[in-house]
Design a binder for these strands. Structure first.
Lengths: 198, 198, 198, 198
DNA sequence: TATGAATGAGCATTCATTCAT
DNA sequence: CATGAATGAATGCTCATTCAT
C-alpha cells in the first residue's frame, strides 16, 4: 500500500519538519531538506509545486490525526469537567509528542502571507471548537458558570495550555506530564466552575 | 534634543516594525525597510551593524517603557487581586497599542538562533515575574489558593491573556477592551482564588 | 501498416510542432510535449535520443513532401512566368497549411548551434533552387531581363513571398489566398520581366 | 552626462546583444552576460527587473536611432523612386552595421510570448510605414503603378531586402554593399514602376 | 551624516535525461 | 513498447552587505 511516492514524500515530510522546527521556514533551505531526506533536489519539485507547498502538504497530512484524536477524546468523556480535563491532557500529550510540529505551528501561525495560513487557522478554530463545546455543555448543565462566553473561555484555556506546555518543555522538561496537567486542571476547572466568585 | 541621527533611526524603527509584524523578520528585506522609511539603503549600515542589529536596537528601545509600565502597575495596586487585574489590563492595553510589536514578539520569541533571543526571553521572564509576585503575594495573604505553583500560574495567566488578546484583535477588534478584560478577570480570578475546587 | 510505434511518434510530432511554433524550441519542455501527446515522459527517450533528435526527425519527416510538391510544381509549368507564379502560389499554400511548421522554420533557421541547422539550410537552398531555375530559364528564353542575377533574384522573391505570407496570416488572415498571390504575382513578374527600367 | 549607471547599462547591452545574436535569448545565460560585461551578477538585477527586461530595454534603446535614420532618409529624398532606393540602402547598411541586432530581431520577432513582442512589432510597423509612404507617394504621382496595394508592397519590399541582406552577409559577405543595393534596386523599382506588365 | 551603485554568495526552481519496472 | 519516479547540473533571481562619493 505504501507506494514509492508515499515513501519519498514521508521522508521529505520528516526532514522538513525537523529542520523547520529548528530554524523556521525561511531559515531552512531545500538543499538541507533533501540532504536530510536522502533524496535529490529535483524530487521535491517532482512531488510538490515548491517548498511552501511541501510544507502545506505536510501540515495537512499531520493534522488530520490530531483532529481525530481530539474528536475521540471529547466523545469518550462523560462529564463536561472530565471532557475539559481530557482535552487539556490530549493537547499536552500532543505538544510533547510533536514538539517540532508545535514549535513550527507557534512561529508560523501568525504569518499571514503564507499559503497554509488558512489551513492553520481552520485547524486552530476546529480545536478550540472542541473546548468550546465542552464548556458550552458545562454551562448548559449548570456545572459551569453562566457569566462567561464559551468561545472566549475556550480560546483562553487553549492558549493557557499551549503557553504552559511550551514553558514546560523549554524550561523544565523533566517535570512529569501529570504534574503539568494537574496544575492546569486546577486553574482551568476553577476558572469555569460555577460557585462564589471574587 | 532629537538629533538628525535620532530622527533617522526612529524612521527606520517604525518602518522595520510595521513590515516585520506583517511579514516576519526573514520575510522583510532591507530594501523594503529603507523604502518605507524614506532613506537610502546605506543609511541602515551607517547606523547599525546590520539588519539584525537594527531589530535588536528596536526591541531594546521599545521594551524599556513596557517594563516600566508593568512595574508601576504592580506598585500602584493595593491588593493581590487588584494587582492581577491591573496587570492583565496593562498587558491587554499594551498589546492593543503595540499590535505590530506584539505580533513580532509572538513569531520571533521561539526562534532560537536570533541574536535578540536572550533579550526577548528575559523580557518574557521579567513580565511573568510581575504576575508571579502578585500571585505569590495573594497566596501568602491567604486570598489565593495555596495548591498552585505561583510561577506556573503566572505563566499560564500570561499566556491566557496573550492568546485572548490576539484572538480579540484578529477576530473581533470592535469588542471594547473592557469587555475582554472583564472576561479574563472572571476566568483568572476564579482560577486562583481560594475556595472549593472541582 | 501504421505500427503502434508510428502512432506514438506521430502524436509526439504533432504535439512538439504545435508547442514549438508557439513557444520556440528552447521554450518548450519535454513535459509539455508528452502531456499534449498523451504519453509518458520516458516514451520520448524510448523513441528518440533526446529532445533535439525528436525535432530533427520531425523536420525530416515533414520536409520530404514539401520538396516533392515544389518539384512537381516546377515540372508542371509550361513557361518560366507560369513556373514562377506557380512556385509562389505553392509556397503560399504550404505556409498557410503548415503555419506551425513555417513559424518554427523562421525562428530556428538562423540558430546556428542547432543540430538540424544543416537540414534546414539545405532545404532552403533547394527551394530557392527551384525559383532560380525558373528565373534562369526565363532569362535564357529572353522573357526575363538579363541584368539580374538569377540566384540573387530567387532568394529575393522567396523572401518576399515568405514575408508577405506571414504578414498575411498574422495581420489579415481573412484575405483570400488568391488576392495575396495576385499581389505578389504583379510585383514579382514586373521585377523580373524584361523591358524598360526606372 | 554619462553617469555610472549609464556606463554599466551600456556594458550590459553590448554583452547581451553579442551573446543573444550568437546563441539566442534562451540560450544565453545571465552568468555569461555579466562575465562578458565585466560586472557582477547582481548588477543586472539592480538595473533591470530581469533578463527579459534587460533585452527589452536594449531593444528600445537601440531602436530609436534606427527609426530616426529612416525618418531622415525619407525626408531627404526628392522623388518616390529615390526615396525607395534610399530606404533599401539604409536598411542594408543598418543590417550590415548591426548584424547581431538584426539576427536577434529575425529570431525573436515571431516569438509571441516575449515581453518585447509589442516593441518589436511596432518597430516593424513603423519601418514598413516609411516604405509604404514612399510607395503611396509614387502611386499618387503616377510614377508607380496603381494596381498594387501600397501597404502590401511595402511589406514585400521590406522582406525582400531583409532576406537578401541576410543571404548576403551569411553566404557572400565579400560582395560590396553597392552591388547588393543595385540588384535590389533593379528588382524593386521594376516591381512598382508603372508601365507594361506581364 | 547620508547616499545608491555594485557586489556575490546563496537560494528556489527548472528540465533534459536516466532507469528500474 | 511504455512508464513515471528520481536525478542533479544548470539557471534566474534575491538580498544583506560594502564602499566610493
Amino acid at each position: 500500500m505504501a507506494t514509492r511516492s508515499d515513501t519519498t514524500k514521508c521522508k521529505l515530510y520528516d526532514a522538513a519538519l525537523a529542520l523547520i522546527a529548528e530554524k523556521g521556514f525561511a531559515g531552512t533551505t531545500v538543499d538541507e531538506i533533501v540532504e536530510r531526506a536522502g533524496v535529490a533536489k529535483g524530487t521535491v519539485y517532482y512531488h510538490f509545486a515548491g517548498k511552501a507547498e511541501l510544507v502545506e502538504a505536510l501540515i495537512a497530512e499531520r493534522l488530520t490525526p490530531l483532529q481525530e484524536q481530539f474528536r475521540m477524546t471529547l466523545e469518550a468523556a462523560c462529564t463536561p469537567s472530565a471532557a475539559l480535563e481530557a482535552l487539556v491532557r490530549a493537547e499536552l500529550e500532543w505538544i510533547r509528542d510533536n514538539r517540532s510540529f508545535s514549535k513550527m505551528l507557534m512561529t508560523e501561525l501568525w504569518r499571514e502571507e503564507r499559503i497554509w495560513h488558512d489551513t492553520l487557522f481552520s485547524l486552530r478554530h476546529s480545536i478550540i471548537g472542541y473546548f468550546e463545546r465542552a464548556i458550552a455543555d458545562g454551562i448548559a448543565a449548570g456545572v459551569f458558570r453562566s457569566d462567561i462566553d464559551a468561545a472566549f473561555a475556550a480560546s483562553a484555556l487553549f492558549g493557557m495550555t499551549v503557553t504552559s506546555a511550551l514553558d514546560w518543555l523549554v524550561f523544565s522538561p523533566e517535570t512529569p506530564l501529570d504534574t503539568v496537567a494537574e496544575q492546569i486542571r486546577r486553574l482551568a476547572s476553577m476558572a469555569v466552575t460555577s460557585g462564589s466568585a471574587a
